[in-house]
């Protein structure tokens, strides 16, 4: 938790707040635009699926590892999904090593909720025999922080799942060196995050904008319905502002989905 700002953060915050009050941004974008998005899939050959996402200067790598396990007791006929996020100290001077921070736990859980609620992964297809199913371990590795880890994290997560292939299974054993079929997906969820600075709503905040923000709102949709939402920071939103953000999130889904589907 960053409680006291250093002098540079303070000056930058003041600067982006002044700009926001004039509906301007430090990188010249308009309020409803994303920074440049680049997705590279399959960089980590040892992982069953992987993707690296650059969202402006924010860089997130997602890795999918599949592990043969017993299904959970209350859901014996489906595989598991386990999402984690690491805010690595190499990604920002604000990140420290140690046990997972509330911020990293929130990030992992919000990404997890969207994927789960939209039923993106066909978890039933992961059962290989009674009492044995693939667990999907989805790890988000934050490599460089410049704001908006929710949207970049979701892009990386969905892209890595798209890239993932299920290992072979023979004679009761997993054969990790052989991959037989793509991981079966039924849906694609996208994440759209706004911050509020004063009375101005900004899509895809940079690190400076996030540090200066009063409140944050993330909407995850599959283009048809809202699948997850999360409000963050200590500021507030009016109903109208939330309605506007939801509308914008639906409007951005196709653009984000195209990046996930590509390649």
């Amino acid at each position: 938790m960053m409680i006291q700002m250093n002098a540079i953060d303070y000056v930058n915050s003041k600067y982006v707040r002044e700009l926001a009050s004039k509906k301007m941004r430090e990188d010249g974008r308009d309020a409803l635009s994303y920074r440049e998005i680049r997705v590279a899939k399959g960089l980590i050959k040892n992982a069953e699926g992987s993707a690296q996402v650059d969202l402006g200067a924010t860089r997130v790598m997602a890795g999918v590892k599949m592990v043969l396990e017993s299904p959970m007791e209350d859901t014996p006929d489906v595989g598991n999904l386990i999402v984690s996020a690491e805010l690595l100290p190499l990604a920002s001077p604000d990140f420290e090593s140690g046990p997972p921070s509330p911020e990293s736990i929130e990030l992992a859980r919000v990404v997890d909720r969207g994927i789960r609620a939209a039923e993106c992964i066909d978890l039933g297809s992961l059962l290989v025999e009674e009492g044995k199913a693939w667990s999907v371990y989805l790890d988000l590795y934050i490599l460089n922080y410049d704001g908006n880890l929710f949207d970049s994290g979701m892009l990386a997560a969905m892209s890595a799942l798209k890239d993932a292939k299920v290992p072979a299974y023979s004679n009761g054993k997993a054969v990790m060196s052989e991959r037989v079929a793509p991981l079966k997906l039924n849906n694609v969820v996208s994440s759209c995050t706004f911050v509020k600075i004063g009375d101005t709503l900004l899509l895809d905040p940079t690190g400076n904008e996030e540090r200066a923000a009063d409140a944050r709102m993330t909407i995850e949709t599959d283009g048809k319905v809202i699948r997850a939402m999360q409000k963050g920071l200590s500021g507030s939103f009016s109903r109208q502002e939330i309605s506007d953000i939801i509308g914008a999130a639906f409007g951005k889904h196709d653009e984000l989905k195209a990046h996930i589907d590509k390649g």
């Binding site: 789960r116 809202i226 699948r227 997850a228 409000k231 939103f237």
Partner: peptide, 20 residues
């Protein structure tokens, strides 16, 4: 006092109308 939203979390499936 002003009906501002201070905490909001959601998961599942909601249309915009259902949200309202």
């Amino acid at each position: 006092r002003n009906n501002e939203v201070l905490l909001l979390q959601m998961d599942g499936s909601l249309t915009k109308q259902q949200f309202e």
